[in-house]
């Protein structure tokens, strides 16, 4: 894994925020799943969110592309506020790419069709150009030789890389990752993490929910710890892992770093 420490000096990051979450609350019925979330993400910043299951980390990033609705507070993505306005939601979704834990490739379409779908139907790009975009991104994740296969014929790691490429075809400004390697066999985790690191090297703004601490250490600008719906602590990887401030953080770290 390439050491990205040199890029982590905050001043080198652009000063404008691309995601602002202000006093956000979300309830599932009576259950207060996200409590007073305040988070600012700058352009090209890379954040890893960790925490025990049920802490609300997936829910948080799903609120950013409106797969979940928040009830209180504000979420502003690339200057557009997330409300019930459908037009805004669609605009934001075209700028924000998401990679799911279970890949969610479209099984009835070939790989290249999976990727070209967004450009053709959302960006209204001609077919040939869409396929070129698709092949370009497939090459980026090193899976161009599988272009004409169907998702059912690929392994888990291959499918996840295709999923990453599919999101990239929309030229998103932000990439969200919801536990991208949790459903993979151990020997396939590396190929997916490598693809994500390459993405990082190109300067993509990334928010990753993951337990892969090695990845966090080498690539993240900030690591956030969430528990019971709150962001408990957030810091640079060195500070976070060497100097956890809260007891809950210490407890969590002791459980996962053994």
């Amino acid at each position: 894994m390439v050491n990205q420490k040199s890029e982590k000096i905050e001043s080198s990051l652009a000063n404008d925020a691309i995601i602002e979450i202000i006093e956000m609350h979300k309830w599932f019925g009576d259950f207060h799943v996200l409590q007073d979330i305040n988070l600012t993400v700058k352009k090209q910043e890379r954040i890893v969110i960790c925490g025990p299951s049920g802490s609300g980390k997936s829910t948080l990033i799903r609120c950013i592309n409106r797969l979940e609705e928040h009830q209180r507070g504000k979420i502003i993505v690339d200057g557009i506020e997330l409300t019930n306005d459908l037009k805004n939601i669609e605009k934001i979704r075209a700028e924000v790419g998401m990679v799911f834990q279970h890949f969610n490739l479209f099984p009835h379409l070939t790989i290249v069709d999976n990727l070209a779908l967004g450009p053709i139907w959302v960006r209204k790009v001609p077919k040939k150009e869409a396929e070129e975009i698709a092949m370009h991104n497939l090459e980026k994740v090193q899976i161009a030789d599988q272009a004409l296969k169907y998702p059912g014929q690929l392994s888990g790691g291959q499918q996840q890389r295709v999923a990453i490429a599919r999101s990239l075809c929309m030229s998103p400004k932000i990439m969200l990752f919801d536990e991208p390697t949790s459903a993979l066999d151990p020997e396939m985790i590396k190929e997916v993490l490598d693809a994500m690191i390459e993405l990082a090297q190109e300067g993509m703004t990334m928010i990753v929910v993951s337990h892969e601490m090695g990845f966090a250490k080498s690539v993240a600008h900030r690591v956030l710890f969430m528990d019971f719906g709150q962001i408990v602590e957030g810091n640079t990887p060195e500070e976070f892992f060497d100097n956890p401030q809260h007891d809950r953080t210490k407890l969590f770290l002791s459980q996962i770093l053994h």
Partner: peptide
Amino acid sequence: KGQREAAMSIGLKQGQVLNLIILPQ
């Protein structure tokens, strides 16, 4: 459900999600 979510997160509209992803399957 993930199929619908993946389709929405690419930016497809409701009608497109239905026609291109949900109905064929």
